[in-house]
Simulated assay, not measured.
Amino acid sequence: MTPHNELRLLPWSGPDGKPCFLLSTDGPLSRLAGLTEAAQLDIAADLLEHAHEVLADESSAPEELRLVPSDLTGALGDALRVAASRGHRLPTPGTSDHGDSNEVPHLPAGAFG
């Protein structure tokens, strides 16, 4: 859960292209932002799969080969905005939303593959 004093980067820009932020952590606009982020990530995953197919097909038209990077660029921008927004909402080390414990979990190196 987002702390009440933190701004949430929304997954869309304002009319002037500047980032939009939300102070509320719960409510219809926050839920819409979550649904929009999920849709953007789904679109990016589908587009990545399509790009693999186009690149693997030797008969792909030049127009399609030019369109794929343009579409991927937009999807990557959306995914990076989602990552930035979610990264800002992660708890900082030493804090916890689950009680009063200030302990940071420690994982063995093997947990990271």
Results as ranks from 00 to 15, higher is better:
residue 81 R to L: 04
residue 110 G to H: 04
residue 80 L to M: 11
residue 45 A to C: 12
residue 10 L to S: 06
residue 31 R to G: 06
residue 113 G to E: 05
residue 101 S to G: 03
residue 108 P to Y: 05
residue 20 C to S: 12
residue 16 D to H: 15
residue 63 E to Q: 00
residue 40 Q to Y: 08
residue 57 D to F: 11
residue 102 N to Y: 10
residue 65 L to H: 15
residue 99 G to R: 09
residue 73 T to L: 05
residue 32 L to G: 00
residue 4 H to V: 13
residue 27 G to A: 10
residue 84 A to Y: 12
residue 56 A to E: 10
residue 77 G to Q: 01
residue 22 L to F: 05
residue 44 A to E: 00
residue 70 S to D: 02
residue 19 P to M: 13
residue 104 V to I: 15
residue 16 D to I: 13
residue 23 L to C: 13
residue 96 S to V: 04
residue 80 L to E: 11
residue 4 H to K: 11
residue 42 D to T: 14
residue 94 G to C: 15
residue 25 T to M: 07
residue 93 P to G: 10
residue 24 S to F: 06
residue 104 V to N: 13
residue 101 S to D: 05
residue 80 L to S: 11
residue 98 H to T: 13
residue 78 D to P: 03
residue 94 G to M: 10
residue 42 D to P: 03
residue 98 H to G: 00
residue 5 N to Y: 07
residue 101 S to F: 08
residue 42 D to F: 14
residue 57 D to A: 13
residue 18 K to R: 14
residue 23 L to S: 15
residue 111 A to W: 03
residue 54 V to R: 02
residue 64 E to F: 09
residue 66 R to W: 01
residue 38 A to R: 01
residue 5 N to A: 12
residue 15 P to H: 15
residue 46 D to G: 07
residue 7 L to G: 00
residue 65 L to P: 05
residue 99 G to E: 08
residue 74 G to H: 02
residue 39 A to W: 06
residue 4 H to D: 14
residue 45 A to M: 11
residue 71 D to C: 05
residue 80 L to G: 03
residue 5 N to W: 09
residue 75 A to N: 00
residue 6 E to C: 09
residue 31 R to M: 12
residue 94 G to P: 06
residue 78 D to C: 08
residue 107 L to E: 07
residue 106 H to W: 15
residue 39 A to Q: 08
residue 8 R to D: 10
residue 94 G to K: 14
residue 18 K to W: 03
residue 3 P to C: 13
residue 51 A to N: 09
residue 51 A to E: 07
residue 61 A to I: 02
residue 96 S to R: 01
residue 29 L to Q: 05
residue 6 E to A: 12
